[in-house]
């Protein structure tokens, strides 16, 4: 037994320094329509609920604070049938916050690999959407769209709970997108 003990196998054909490759692009094509598939299932009568897995990829915890506020009695995320899960195996969607620091790159990709399909990815906060003030830094692997196919972008620093709610419902196709 090595010193680190149990180790998950690394993703095939990927090393931490490798840039986003064609594998990512084919995955992006596969994942196209994941939002529609999940949305259609959830909108059906007795179709089920929407389960999310949250990964903090180097966030400053402001986004987490707002995500936590969604569970309070005022916003009450659960009334809409949206739940945050402790395991990626049970999740339909992946919420990512933070600019994807290098140490969190591999755990994030493993979480994504562990999710059953159809799966959708939601970028929460300016950092996950564009890198924010960390954009272009050599210590971040983000923004998220360089690693995973993003279905919904929720901007804001941090996004307010209602903005988050709008984004989550947009992922399910239950609200309209704002015109700009």
């Amino acid at each position: 037994m090595s010193r680190t003990g149990f180790q998950l196998p690394l993703l095939p054909g990927r090393s931490p320094s490798e840039p986003p490759d064609t594998q990512d692009r084919t995955r992006a094509l596969e994942a196209k329509g994941a939002s529609e598939q999940v949305g259609a299932r959830v909108r059906r009568l007795f179709g089920g609920s929407f389960h999310l897995r949250h990964v903090d990829a180097g966030s400053c915890n402001a986004c987490e604070s707002e995500l936590k506020a969604l569970a309070n009695p005022y916003y009450d995320l659960h009334r809409l049938g949206i739940f945050i899960e402790p395991s990626p195996r049970h999740a339909d969607g992946l919420i990512v916050t933070g600019p994807i620091t290098l140490p969190m790159r591999e755990p994030l990709l493993r979480t994504y690999e562990a999710m059953p399909e159809p799966r959708l990815v939601i970028a929460v906060g300016t950092c996950a959407c564009t890198g924010g003030i960390f954009a272009g830094s050599e210590l971040v692997a983000g923004p998220l769209e360089r690693l995973l196919p993003v279905d919904v972008y929720i901007p804001g620093c941090p996004p307010s709970p209602l903005t988050l709610l709008h984004g989550l419902l947009l992922a399910l196709g239950r609200v309209e997108e704002a015109r700009r």
């Binding site: 003030i133 279905d151 996004p159 704002a178």
Partner: peptide
């Protein structure tokens, strides 16, 4: 997606062309 709504540009614009809106439905696909 990059805007953090700090409001510095509002103060900097000499023509008042920029403002911070209270619109919250900002998510996009």
């Amino acid at each position: 997606a990059a805007c953090i709504a700090c409001g510095l540009c509002v103060a900097a614009c000499p023509r008042g062309a920029l403002s911070i809106s209270n619109e919250f439905e900002l998510a996009a696909s």
